[in-house]
C-alpha cells in the first residue's frame, strides 16, 4: 500500500486515477507526470518502482494542488466579490457567472459557483 503525499493507495489502483484523486491534478497533468517517468496509461500503483513513486511525490509536492489550489480559487472569487464586480456578485448569488441563461437549468452553476465550492472538498 504505497503512500503518495500522505494518502494510502491500493496496489490495484490505476496510477492515473490515483494521481487524479488530488485536487488540481486532471487528465493533462497526470498524463504529463506519467510520461515523465515512463509510466504507461494502464499502469497500476503496485507496478511502480519505489524510485518512481518518490519522484512523483517530489513533483507533486512542488505543485500547487490540494488545499493550496482550493485556496487560490477561493481567493480569486473573494477578490472579485470584494471589488464589487459583476462576476463577484454572481458568485455570491450562486448564479451562472459567464452569461448563461438562468431560465431553466442552472443546477451546475448553483453547485460550483459558490464562494466556497462544497463539491470539491
Amino acid at each position: 500500500m504505497p503512500y503518495i503525499l500522505g494518502t494510502n493507495f491500493l496496489e490495484t489502483q490505476f496510477v492515473k486515477s490515483a494521481l487524479e484523486s488530488f485536487y488540481g491534478v486532471g487528465p493533462k497533468v497526470s498524463q504529463r507526470l506519467m510520461a515523465r517517468y515512463y509510466i504507461h496509461p494502464t499502469a497500476k500503483i503496485g507496478a511502480l518502482k519505489q524510485q518512481q513513486i518518490m519522484a512523483i511525490q517530489e513533483d507533486l509536492s512542488n505543485m500547487t494542488i490540494g488545499n493550496d489550489a482550493r485556496r487560490i480559487l477561493k481567493d480569486t472569487i473573494m477578490r472579485l466579490k470584494e471589488m464589487g464586480t459583476y462576476r463577484g456578485r454572481r458568485h455570491a448569488l450562486n448564479l451562472p457567472v459567464r452569461g448563461q441563461n438562468t431560465r431553466s437549468q442552472i443546477v451546475t452553476a448553483r453547485k460550483h459557483n459558490r464562494i466556497v465550492d462544497r463539491t470539491h472538498g
Partner: peptide, 8 residues
C-alpha cells in the same frame, strides 16, 4: 497500444 510497461 500502451498497455504494457516501457522504459528507455
Amino acid at each position: 497500444v500502451a498497455h504494457t510497461a516501457y522504459a528507455p
